[in-house]
């Protein structure tokens, strides 16, 4: 402002409103943090994401050092947890446990998907089939999967089948409901257009409804596999001797909080990787679906 006045020879009263207006314009362009309808730019997304993570770890670290000496083992520091994780991998064969957990999760999840996706699509396409299946299947969603643990134990003992069965049940019924929704959300005119083109029902289901619903179904899978991870620890309490959950449970008995937190951290990392995997699948398989991105 001072610079401006110096440069222009005379500033009259009549110029004042103009200057004022310009200042207001500049003001309006100033970016506010809490701005409606204003998504973060690519660079801001990265910076803010890192900042958020940094704040989280900083609060954790401060929490650790703020805890009195004798209580600190119940809230280990970030470096202790990371160190423990490295120790688990290098000395305790943790890789094997992670692998076992991954096999359980992905194995049971894909088994659930193999049932839920065709079933959900069929229900979404054919009203009478939906009327036959849906009432029965809907009820199951209200039963907590964990309540099947005693039953699974009686039937299968503390076996792999029992653990996978729990993960399977925990995901299946929700996934069916979500795939059904995704299928019903397919624009009805796509089906009608295909009908007027003389397409057979099988062709319409496979070549119109499936490709139309698939991006949304992959999204549903991404959401449901996260639920699968939450059941993993419960499943591995069921007499498991290996797997991330078993390692954590064993550590719990000896109050090894750093090991427990390392396990939680590991599940978090695997969860994020799974999420990224599904997003990449989405982008690779459905390049035509670009409008949904960003």
């Amino acid at each position: 402002m001072i610079q401006g006045t110096k440069n222009s020879a005379i500033v009259t009263n009549r110029d004042a409103p103009a200057l004022f207006a310009r200042a207001a314009d500049v003001q309006a362009h100033k970016e506010r943090f809490f701005e409606l309808l204003s998504p973060a730019s690519g660079r801001q997304t990265v910076i803010l994401g890192l900042l958020g993570a940094f704040i989280f770890f900083a609060v954790w670290e401060i929490g650790h050092y703020a805890t009195p000496e004798e209580g600190r083992r119940f809230l280990p520091s970030v470096e202790q947890v990371v160190g423990e994780l490295i120790f688990l991998f290098s000395e305790k064969g943790f890789f094997y446990d992670v692998l076992r957990s991954c096999i359980r999760i992905f194995g049971s999840f894909f088994a659930a998907s193999a049932v839920a996706i065709p079933l959900g699509i069929m229900m979404g396409c054919f009203g009478k089939f939906k009327a036959l299946i849906n009432p029965t299947v809907s009820g199951w969603r209200y039963l907590p999967a964990a309540s099947f643990i005693p039953l699974l134990l009686v039937w299968f003992g503390p076996s792999e089948t029992a653990k996978m069965g729990l993960l399977f049940l925990g995901v299946l019924f929700f996934l069916i409901a979500m795939v059904l929704d995704n299928t019903e959300a397919v624009q009805r005119e796509y089906t009608e257009a295909a009908l007027t083109m003389g397409a057979s029902r099988a062709r319409i289901v496979l070549e119109v409804v499936v490709p139309a619903a698939m991006p949304a179904i992959i999204d549903s899978m991404r959401t449901m596999i996260a639920v699968g991870w939450t059941y993993l620890v419960i499943a591995e309490i069921v007499g498991a001797s290996d797997g991330i959950g078993a390692v954590m449970m064993r550590a719990g008995r000896f109050l090894n909080v750093d090991t427990i937190m390392a396990g939680i951290f590991m599940i978090g990392v695997l969860g994020v990787l799974t999420d990224i995997f599904f997003r990449v699948v989405q982008r690779v398989l459905f390049p035509w679906n670009i409008k949904k991105k960003v």
């Binding site: 005119e189 009608e192 257009a193 007027t196 139309a212 459905f286």
Partner: peptide, 19 residues
Amino acid sequence: KPGPDRGMIFQAYTSFPWL
């Protein structure tokens, strides 16, 4: 029933987005 002898064009866009 519908058939390709009577082609239909809808108000909603029905060009398939995956093709």
